[in-house]
């Protein structure tokens, strides 16, 4: 006997894009439940705040990467561009003594500039995104060291700078609930990213280019220019990530940043954005970023060595994509 599942014709649940997101969200909840049961130290306010804070930087980087990946590209340089932006903020604020807001804007623009270069190399010089952004990864890593003189730049004379990420506007309102601003900056950035993606021309062209680049070109869209813009937006998110990072550490650490791009891409992919382009959501990316940090945090609390945390993260990334492939096969 075969069991037949009755389903409303034309409305197959498996075809809806929400499923991957639901699966990712269910996965996140499951992790929370498992870790809460496994250790009493997991579900505490301090630890949850720790997880939120740990997600902030990767979340922002992953938001930028989401744009690029939806447009069927890839950006390997988000981690080191983040560092470069942090160093530039340090230069502006510490070395040049400019006001902090200018330092923030400068950091974000520095990131945007790196992204723009990526975008132009890819669209005008036709260098594959993997190579172009690999080049940018090395270049920004080197530039960060050169500009900083291979030393961290400390924001010791400007204590307000640290408050950007680590202060808690919420804690000031509700004593005890000291969720750092960095977390809200990330959620704010997510809302902005979500609006760009669903409501603006840039977002529309991300999906169009990722879905069928040639058709988009033949429709009269200036694909080269929009591609450059997409990478620039990604760079600006990386720049914002750099500012948060610098504020959190109260310093620009020029040697940091390598490996962050992989966490960002992993978050995007776990969140259901297809590397082949054309689909993806901001909500998925944020859930993906949380899965990665909950995993790291939970395993650490269970005293799993860091090396093994990496193995588990790797397995989760592959499983998430495999689950997506299974779903599509239905």
């Amino acid at each position: 006997m075969e069991a037949k599942i009755a389903r409303a014709p034309g409305k197959s649940l498996f075809r809806s894009d929400a499923v991957q997101k639901l699966m990712a969200f269910a996965g996140l909840i499951a992790l929370f439940v498992v870790f809460s049961l496994a250790s009493p130290n997991f579900l505490t306010l301090d630890n949850v705040i720790g997880i939120l804070l740990a997600t902030a930087v990767n979340g922002v980087l992953a938001l930028g990467a989401t744009f690029v990946i939806i447009a069927a590209g890839i950006d390997l340089s988000v981690g080191t561009v983040m560092t470069f932006s942090a160093v530039m903020t340090g230069v502006l604020v510490v070395f040049w003594g400019l006001p902090i807001p200018l330092g923030i804007v400068g950091g974000i623009l520095a990131g945007g500039l790196c992204g723009l270069v990526n975008g132009l190399v890819i669209s005008k010089m036709k260098v594959p995104p993997f190579i172009a952004t690999l080049g940018m990864l090395y270049a920004t890593r080197g530039l960060s060291l050169v500009i900083s003189g291979v030393k961290p730049i400390y924001f010791n004379d400007t204590p307000e700078f640290r408050q950007i990420a680590m202060g808690s506007a919420l804690g000031a309102l509700i004593p005890g609930l000291d969720i750092p601003n960095a977390v809200f900056i990330m959620f704010g950035a997510a809302i902005v990213a979500g609006l760009i993606l669903s409501k603006t021309v840039l977002g529309r062209y991300c999906f169009a280019i990722g879905s069928n680049e040639e058709a988009t070109r033949l429709s009269g869209v200036n694909v080269d220019a929009w591609k450059a813009a997409v990478y620039m937006v990604c760079g600006m998110f990386a720049g914002l990530g750099g500012v948060i990072m610098a504020s959190r550490l109260n310093s620009a650490q020029p040697a940091l940043g390598a490996g962050y791009e992989l966490d960002a891409i992993a978050a995007v992919v776990i969140g259901g954005t297809s590397l082949r382009g054309g689909e993806g959501t901001v909500l998925g990316t944020i859930i993906g970023a949380f899965i990665i940090s909950v995993l790291a945090n939970g395993l650490r609390i269970l005293s799993v060595p860091q090396e093994w945390q990496m193995v588990v993260t790797g397995a989760i990334v592959v499983l998430a994509v495999y689950a997506d492939i299974i779903r599509r096969r239905q």
């Binding site: 840039l202 529309r204 169009a208 879905s211 069928n212 988009t216 033949l218 429709s219 869209v221």
Partner: peptide
């Protein structure tokens, strides 16, 4: 064109108006 030139992930309407989307008063918003 012989090979259909559509963006499969976009809707019918989004495909038709690709490249010249009507915008709201705020410049970039669709």
């Amino acid at each position: 064109h012989q090979e259909l030139n559509l963006m499969p992930h976009l809707t019918v309407a989004q495909n038709i108006f690709i490249g010249r989307e009507p915008r709201r008063r705020v410049g970039f918003v669709l």
